[in-house]
Design a protein around this nucleic acid. Structure first.
Length: 342
DNA sequence: CTTATTTGACCGCT
DNA sequence: AGCGGTCAAATAAG
């Protein structure tokens, strides 16, 4: 029942709710004469939320058309998302093998249909220890690959709760060749698990506890964010040229991270410089994780890009997570009216 | 023992 | 055929 909404619906709702919450925060700040930076940040985040919402609307719209066409073409395919509760896009994988095996063979299908967005994350830490990039979820590394022309390998992560909660969110992390403090983090799919950032990361250290407090305090402690000036723009052009996806020119680079429930800061492994990861809240100012660039796109025909600076707390964290968490905050929203998303 | 990571092999797509 | 993405056995860590 809880899946009566497709993920993009949930995402959209969550984005809108988030935008509203941010607006409320902004209102408070307006009354309390807060710093301009804080206000500016809030404005940026609000804009980001709405931009995402628009993108989602566009995307689901185009998808709907595709799906209709597909359904006409192949009327057989009845069981959509046999094991992918959240994926409304579940079909249309490779020609031939489809249908519900109930197995994993639709992974590639998912990959094709799931939305994808890329964050470019700058990690600054003193020791050169790789920076922590914790988006609030538990990720399990399942692969690493040397990418052609890239200096560093690319790491592949999937949600820890893939099996237990059927959560098919994945992400890839690469480190930039030129600037080793920059990581490209590509998210795929949305989390359907209920292990958002709150439930993750048990307090392993006092620092973490502080972070959690900060988070609970409303994610307000994004002071670090303000060090990054932001520009938010949306391109709604066709982005066939994936070059567009990397306006800042990052050749394939790889990154490192791994965030598991027990966030540990492992040391860099001898063989692979990236095998370290740590889980640090994006709100942490120590090892700052700044999103330099955020792109949101689907692999199918989605043709929008968001380039946004900042909203660090927003993008990596909010993005994947907005699915359910925010929903529970405001279940009263009348979005569920049938045809709302038509 | 359980869980996570590493890493070579495999597979599908272009 | 080459490349990117995933699998899964071996290994490591807690």
């Amino acid at each position: 029942m809880e899946n009566s909404w497709s993920w993009e619906q949930k995402t959209l709702i969550s984005e809108l709710i988030q935008g509203m919450e941010l607006a409320k925060q902004l209102r408070v700040h307006l009354n309390t004469a807060s710093s301009v930076e804080i206000r500016d940040s809030l404005v940026q985040r609000i804009l980001t939320s709405y931009e995402k919402s628009l993108l989602i609307l566009n995307w689901s719209g185009s998808l709907g058309q595709q799906q209709q066409q597909q359904q006409k073409q192949q009327q057989n395919v009845a069981a959509t998302a046999g094991n992918v509760p959240e994926s409304p896009l579940s079909m249309h994988g490779s020609p031939g093998s489809d249908d519900s095996d109930g197995g994993h063979n639709d992974v590639s299908k998912k990959r094709k249909t799931m939305p994808r967005w890329t964050d470019q994350v700058r990690v600054i830490s003193e020791n050169g220890l790789e920076g922590p990039h914790d988006d609030g979820y538990s990720w399990r590394k399942y692969g690493q690959k040397d990418i052609l022309g890239a200096k560093y390998p690319r790491s592949y992560y999937r949600c820890t709760y893939r099996n237990t909660q059927n959560c098919w969110a994945t992400k890839q992390v690469q480190r930039s060749d030129d600037d080793h403090t920059i990581f490209d983090v590509t998210y795929r799919g949305l989390h359907t698990c209920c292990h958002g950032r709150q439930s993750v990361a048990p307090p392993a250290s006092p620092e973490k506890q502080e972070q959690k407090q900060n988070i609970n305090q409303q994610q307000q402690s994004q002071d670090a964010l303000f060090n990054f000036q932001k520009v938010l723009k949306v391109n709604t052009e066709d982005l066939d040229n994936k070059e567009m996806a990397f306006p800042f020119s990052f050749p394939p680079a790889y990154g490192s991270m791994k965030t598991s429930g027990t966030c540990s800061q492992s040391s860099i492994s001898p063989a692979t410089p990236e095998s370290n990861y740590c889980s640090v809240s994006p709100f942490q100012t120590n090892n700052f994780v700044g999103v330099q660039n955020l792109q949101y796109c689907s692999e199918s025909n989605f043709t929008e890009i968001i380039s946004a600076n900042t909203s660090a707390a927003n993008s990596p964290v909010v993005e994947p997570e907005f699915s359910l968490q925010s929903l529970e905050l405001d279940p009263n929203f009348p979005f569920d009216t049938p045809g709302f998303f038509s």
